[in-house]
Structure formats: structure tokens, C-alpha cells
Design a protein around this nucleic acid. Structure first.
Lengths: 343, 343
DNA sequence: TTGTAAGCGTTATCAC
DNA sequence: GTGATAACGCTTACAA
């Protein structure tokens, strides 16, 4: 019977088995697997352990070893379909290496970010993976992170001075725009997410670059900002489709925005791709299942997550300083973008 | 300068401020906010704290207080669009009450479930929220959970003997089927997820109940199983649409399956809802944005998550035994289901 | 082959 | 007002 009202501890096991706590520790610690011990003793201990349903306290171990085997994962919002694969990527390699992951949703709110960061440090996670923006107004914590030997890797380009995994949004967007131009489009619009997002800025930039390179920037390129939702894509597209000379092609900031564009097109009797071509970003599962199927830029979100976690593990092993891994994107050509109709 | 190679601890602060560790602890502990202390002393300590960038070690605190302020959240797969809102619901109320959440993806694999459960217990989380199935072959851990005073609440009906939050899938599915019947459909099929899922079983049951109640079960009701993906919905629907007398309406196990059905209909020149009506489950964001818009059963996933976390908090406060909270569902009527055409 | 005891970073109890 | 010090549950020299 456990000592006090508390949970069963190594002392209870020791008492039950009639040995010292050190002996119990020895049968549990992989580190001491090699020290010799009488089989009889070991058996007594093992028996006591499962009679009492004993589970060693990892907090105590962590305190001793200065290693919690936990990492923090900071994302804007897990409900945003972009993040789940990334989270899964992180969690998969984390758990395969014995790490737990603490999930934090920040809504890109600097106050929340700061709060989570401090909690994570106080609970002494071994490292942190941060994805998504909102960091502009976050007080710098690199010093504190350093003091507590807390690793950090960023997914994206919002946090320099730390290892990071990224994609080349400028190039990816430029390639998508060039695809549209190659199809014969001359009036193309970029229908966008939040102007404050570095991702959106890069994609808009790639779009402009493509227009300029093709000599299509006679008039100012049409770039509209909103946010990353279907609703935003719907509204923006509706507006544009009502113009006297509406764009014949839309490069959307992500698939959700593109889906909103689909709805707007349907509601204004515009056919895709006949009347207007649409290209998305992310290659969400739905891209393959909407009709027409959506041409979109595939982003290896899962791989970015797993790469980030691997970078973190490399940091733990002291592998060099800031690393930067750029993951490849790929334009997935489906049915939503075609040559503009003669009209 | 910190004592050893280790991180800065309360002793370093004490040394730097020229006071004892007890004094430092007093300025940090909210519990001892009322004990009198010379302002000058407090200031010295505060200054030392932020000069050193000191952050108290919550592991040590947890060891003392037998409370980690962490909870485990066990889901089959965060990449499945059903779970993110639930996870967010849990995390929101958790963080608002000062709890961190450790995310675990099990893929419904009993071995993984068991592994995560043991890790969570060893790290002494205060409680666990479990959602999704795969528990049939998981060794019972209630005894151990009890020993370590680990709370647990289940989302769904897969784990009895614990408080849980659920929805009435039988009734919800029945209502959806009755909607179709009311529209005039006579040949309705249930196109399903995994047969092993209690959720699917309940939805199939509600479907059968509705048919029977309307005297429509002359022939055996058509129920097809697969999994919860677009692909599965696509294949199943394709098959059925090729039948001599294809169903005029499809009750799909979830929205992803319904989306697959949309694609299959498009590819076999079937119009929705003219040739075939489609009803989904979950009311995912896309439901509003596909065309035609999808009639579907809304499930308050976010609220289920937050309710589950609140139940857990109630357990911590020792509020009674097993509770059961049943959340309401709602049929959202949109454009994908209409009266069958005369043909 | 096993036990004793110091220590990980805190808080809480008791002295002074 | 402030300081020693004994816990919390474990690991690991060092002794025996």
C-alpha cells in the first residue's frame, strides 16, 4: 500500500520488494542495464512494480537530466487547414524519437505568442518549432532561449537568426503566373490573403515579377488583399468579375481563397475555366475533388514539419549553427486553368 | 554569472541579489504575495531576476505540488479535417485556465494509443482527453490512471466508465434520412466510412431506422462501407451510380465522402441534385463553398472539445463521478438535396 | 551484488 | 523580514 495519500513512488516499490530505492532504479534505468544483479532480486522488484502499477515519474528524471523530451509547437491556428499536415509532420518525427509535442495556437497575437513562449521556457521544453507570422511585435527572447539551452527552428522566413525551413514563394508564384501567361492570358489578377503576411508578400512579388518579365506590366498589376478564407476569396472575386474588363485569370493566395473564387464564379454565371481561369496555392485535398479540378501549387507541408523537427534534433546534437532548408514546390496542373476564350 | 554550466536557477538569483533562495521564492510565489518584505529587498531580487533572465523551473514546482498543469489530447489524426476544431476547442479552454496540451496522433493504432497513454502518465499530466476510436484492443489502464489521479474524459462513446461528451449519431442520421424521404426519395443509399467505427455504426443505424419507420425497408437497405476519405466516397458512389436502378439519394458518412460523391457524379454526368441528391455529415467549411452547396449535418466539434476540457476541469475540482454531456446536432439544408426528378 | 546519500530546482515550515 | 532546511521522486557516485 502506497506510503501516503500520494501516488505510488519508487519508495513504495522498494518497500514492497524489500530492497533499496537504488535497486529499483537500477532495474528501470536503461543506463544501468549492464550492472550485475541477482535474478531473484530483479524478479522481486519487477513483481512489486506491476503489483503496484508503478510508473516512474518523468518529472523527477527530467529535473535530474535537464532534458524533458518535450518540444513546443507554435502555430497560428490548427483549424486553418494549412497547418494540420505540418503539425502531423512535426509530431511524427518527434514521437518516433521519443519527444512529446505541446501545441500552442496563437492567432498571430503577439501577446499570446509571448505568453506561450514563456510557458514553454518555464516548463523547460528542449526546443520549439514556430510556424506562421505575427512575430513582428513579439519581444525578442533569443537571450532567454539561449540561457536555457532551448532550441528553436522556424518554418517560414519571419524569424531570422534561427535555423529555418522555407519554400521559395516568390519563385513558386512566378512559375504559376508564367503558366497562366503561357496559356495566353493577358489580364491576370492576384487575389490575396493578408497584406501583412510575408508569404502573401512573396507570392504577390513573384506574380509581379512574372508580369514584368513578360512585358505585361503596362498597367499596374492588379493585386487585391483580404485574408486566407473562402469568404475573402468570394468577395474579392465577385468584385473583380463585375469590372468592365474583368481579369481572365486569377492567381489565388491559397486554395481556400480559390474555393471562394469558384463560388463567386458560379454565382455570377462565369464558367471555369472557359470564362475565367483559377490557380490556387497549397494543393489541399479538396483541390483534386472540386470540379473543375483545381490547378494549384503543391507545398510539402508535412515534409516541412518533419524537416523542421529534424533540424531541431540536429540542434540538440549540437550540429553547427543556423541552417536553412528550402523545400521544393510544384505546380500541379489540373483543369481550372486553360487558354482564355476568344471573346 | 550562473553557477555551473547549467541554466540559471533560483540560487544564482539569490547569490546575485545577496539574499537567500527563500526570499527569491517569496517574490515569485503568488502564494506568498502577502508576507511582508522590505521594498528594497524585493527590488534587489527583481533586478537580479531580469538581469539574469531567470525563469523559474516549472518541473521543480510540479514535483512539489503534484500538478503539472498539462493535459494530454489523444486523437486519431490531426490531418483529418474533423479534428482541428475539436483540438482548438480543447486548447482554448485549456490555455485560458493555464493548462498546456500535449498532442498525440494515434492513427487508431492500439499500440500507439497504449504508448501515448503510458508516456502521458509517466509525465504526470493532470488529465487526458481522448477522441476517436481504435480502443477496442487497448489494454485497460483505468487502474493506473486512478493510482496517479489522472483525469480522463472521452469524446464519443468508445470509452464508457469515464465522463464523456457525445452527439446522438443515431438520431442525427435518422433526421437526415427522413429529410430525404420527405423530399420523396425511395431509393436511398448510405455511403459510409469504416464499418468498425462506432460513429459509422450509429449513423448507419439511424439510416435504417428511418427507412423502417417509413416502411421503406422492403428490400434490404443499401449500406456500403469504406473509409472517411474523398477517394472512398468517389469509388463507392461510382459503383452505385452504375447500377441498373441507381439510388436517387446518397446519405454520406461525412463531408469528405460527400465531396468524393460530388466528383463521381460529375464524372458520370450525373447532376446534383437533379439526378442524385447528396447529404453529408460534419458541416466542414467547404460545405458552404462547393456548388451546389452541400446539405449536411452540423456537428459542434469545437464545442465538443471545449466541453470535454471543461468536464476535465470539473473532475480536477472533484465534481462528482462520470458525467455525460450530449451535444446537439443540426441538419443544415442547402442545395444538394431536392425532390427526385420524375424519371 | 546491494545500500547510502548527495543533488536536480523549487516551495513551505519553522526559526531567528 | 529573512534565512536554514526538509521535502518532492528520481539517478548515480561511492561505500560496503
Amino acid at each position: 500500500m502506497p506510503r501516503s495519500k500520494g501516488a505510488v513512488s519508487i519508495r513504495d516499490v522498494a518497500a514492497a520488494a524489500g530492497v533499496s530505492v537504488a535497486t529499483v532504479s537500477r532495474v528501470l534505468s536503461p543506463a544501468t542495464a549492464d550492472v550485475p544483479m541477482r535474478k531473484e532480486t530483479r524478479d522481486k522488484v519487477v513483481r512489486a512494480i506491476d503489483e503496484l502499477g508503478y510508473r516512474p515519474n518523468d518529472l523527477a528524471r527530467a529535473l535530474l537530466h535537464h532534458r524533458t523530451a518535450a518540444i513546443g509547437l507554435v502555430v497560428p491556428d490548427i483549424s486553418n487547414p494549412y497547418y494540420p499536415p505540418l503539425v502531423r509532420g512535426v509530431e511524427d518525427v518527434a514521437s518516433s524519437r521519443g519527444y512529446r509535442v505541446v501545441l500552442c495556437n496563437t492567432d498571430r497575437d503577439p501577446a499570446k505568442i509571448t505568453g506561450y513562449l514563456d510557458t514553454l521556457i518555464k516548463t523547460r521544453v528542449d526546443g520549439i518549432v514556430v510556424a506562421g507570422g505575427g512575430w513582428a511585435d513579439v519581444p525578442d527572447r533569443t537571450a532567454v532561449l539561449g540561457r536555457y539551452r532551448t532550441g528553436l527552428v522556424a518554418v517560414g522566413r519571419h524569424l531570422t537568426a534561427h535555423p529555418s525551413v522555407r519554400i521559395d514563394n516568390v519563385a513558386a508564384s512566378r512559375a504559376a503566373a508564367e503558366h497562366l501567361i503561357g496559356l495566353g492570358h493577358r489580364r491576370i489578377a492576384f487575389v490575396g490573403g493578408p497584406a501583412s503576411s510575408t508569404t502573401v508578400q512573396d507570392r504577390a512579388q513573384g506574380f509581379r515579377d512574372a508580369l514584368k518579365a513578360s512585358g505585361l506590366d503596362g498597367r499596374a498589376p492588379v493585386v487585391r488583399y483580404g485574408d486566407f478564407t473562402e469568404e475573402s476569396g468570394y468577395e474579392l472575386t465577385r468584385e473583380m468579375l463585375r469590372l468592365a474588363r474583368p481579369p481572365t485569370a486569377l492567381l489565388c493566395a491559397n486554395d481556400r481563397v480559390a474555393l471562394g473564387a469558384y463560388a463567386a464564379a458560379a454565382d455570377t454565371a462565369c464558367r471555369i475555366p472557359d470564362d475565367v481561369s483559377v490557380v490556387g496555392f497549397d494543393d489541399t485535398p479538396i483541390a483534386r475533388y472540386v470540379r473543375p479540378t483545381l490547378t494549384t501549387v503543391a507545398i510539402p507541408t508535412y515534409e516541412m514539419g518533419s524537416a523542421a523537427m529534424r533540424l531541431l534534433l540536429a540542434q540538440f546534437e549540437g550540429d553547427g549553427g543556423p541552417a536553412l532548408e528550402t523545400m521544393p514546390t510544384r505546380l500541379v496542373v489540373r483543369d481550372s486553368a486553360a487558354a482564355p476564350s476568344a471573346g
